[in-house]
Amino acid sequence: MIEARGLTKRYGDRTAVDGISFTVQPGRVTGFLGPNGAGKSTTMRMLLGLDRPTAGTVTVNGRSYADFPAPLRQVGALLEARALHPGRSARDHLRWMAASNGLPVRRVDEVLDMVGLTDVAGQRVGRFSLGMGQRLGIAVALLGDPPVVVLDEPVNGLDPEGIRWVRTLTRQLATEGRTVFLSSHLMSEMALTADHLVVIGRGRILADCSMSQFIADHAASYVRVASPQRGEVADLLRAQGLDVAVHGEELHVQGLDAAAVGELVGRNGLLLHELTLVRSSLEDAFMTLTAASVEYSAREQTPAGALR
């Protein structure tokens, strides 16, 4: 379990993390979401004792990170920036880490095998591709077989097979009863991986709830209706007090499920060509919630606009 209480980090006059409190429970995957610069990596660095909180605390199973005699056995972490010397081989990197926490050398070969780097273990990591580097980072996180795993953008740079592997791995770690806390910007992937979400924007908690709750709260699903009698159907539904939006040939209806919409239209003798419940995605919900707290957004600009 990870617990943050009033956790704050200021760099000069810039507040990166602004008094956040949350709990990451064991036995499930908790996704950590937020736009660029929201403070996710800073929070994780404080959790690992790398950055000193300006105020507040963050503990792992009730203790600060620095209080663990063998921290790699308690918390496995993949950091955002590569924390590797490019001139050292993958095996040597894992070897010194294992030695530092009194882990047996055979564990090095086990994790190399687990992440599929056995064949390149003797190569200098400076030659590794982005994805190989990520795999090594995950091997580091798994080295001490820790009950708490913290991964900052683990799928960044991985190929589809690697992404699926991380998903399976994190789900499995959670099933084994471990605490899994991971950040990612890949919403579709997060939707498949996480059970619970902690969302931050500009250093503050925007949401801390289950995945389904989050989507239900922040992006409404709707029923897509296509009908040759579009106008009549729209009038009928509006008369029932439903929210109907016209999108080209389709109607988007909110406030009633697909079956109820179908029955209503049928009872009134109107024709339907399509009736589909469209569930909103995590991405929609995320965009809605964080729209106000995006710090670094690209200006929407057409090439023509740019020339003017």
């Binding site: 036995g27 199973n61 005699p69 063998a70 056995r73 010194w96 564990r107 077989d145 009950p147």
Partner: peptide
């Protein structure tokens, strides 16, 4: 889920309380 306490030594045996000797060995490597 209830809080699960996993013995961190259950799968990977080794030194129970690593100290200066382990740090020294790591720096040596």
């Amino acid at each position: 889920t209830d809080t699960v306490t996993l013995d961190p030594h259950r799968n990977v045996p080794g030194v129970r309380r690593p100290g200066f000797a382990q740090t020294l060995r790591a720096e040596w490597i």
